[in-house]
Amino acid sequence: MKRVSAQGWNGLFAGVLAVCVLVVIGAGILSVTTLIVESVPSIRQFGLSFLWTPVWDPVHRQYGALPLLYGSFLTAAIALLLAGVIGVTTAVSLTQIGVPWIRSVISLLLEILAVIPSVVYGVWALLVVAPIFGRWSGYAGGSSGEFAVSGFGVLAAGVVLGVMVMPTVVAVTREAIASAPKDIAEAAMALGATRQETVALAVMPFVRKGILGSLYLGLARAFGEAIAVSLVIGNQPRIGGSLFARADSLASMLAHTLTGSAPPLQTAALYEIGLLLFLMTTVFYGLGRSYIAREAISPRFQPW
């Protein structure tokens, strides 16, 4: 009698937990379905050409994703270039050179960098970074028109994104370096290799995958960042062809346009943009994760 009831409790408990799992997964499925359903009118109207139509023009009810893809890819490329070069070298410094206490201070600073909300980055981007770029391009000859005044544009957005993505690159690369085999590095040192030679010979060959993974994760994060980008990219969905030109990205467009008062077709087009964003971040995120063991990163600190 007693035993049966104990089992009953166990079963009930497991059942409740299973329901929670279903709720979580169900919420995910519902979300994706919603994005699809809401974008149906736009998909019907524009079909696949949505992807390569180079205009986004609410006045003429003409919506194409190309200018936004352009803005997303260009800003993400700038961000990854910065975060990749600076982030990877920083990760190497934090594991290979320097005084321990300086290392831990810098690690702490970078962890803080990762928890700062994007809207706070937005304040910094808008009030500190953009003016610097504005002044700088003014000195540089001022030929880039509006950029010279405000500093808004692809470059400013890319740089801010780079700063936001860097903690991810550093954290993942650092874990990769930490899990590279120590005895191989010691073998190199025992042969009389300098630090630099040890890193090149016996560390880097083991962290290539981790670096690649961190860059993909950074790419996913850069694509998804809406708030900070929308404040400095200039919010003009066009293909300017210059780093100093204003533009717009997928996520930024969503942030500043979707306000509920938009006409139905535009709303649908925006949802299609959202769907596109989801697909792209999922692909890049999935690629990134495929290079990085789940256990390699402590659950405490996952900046993405």
């Binding site: 979300s31 996913a220 809406a226 969503l254 959202g274 989801f278 999922t282 995120y285 993405w304």
Partner: peptide
Amino acid sequence: VDILSGAPSIL
């Protein structure tokens, strides 16, 4: 859960 946690928050 992994896939979902990678999705942008604006969605």
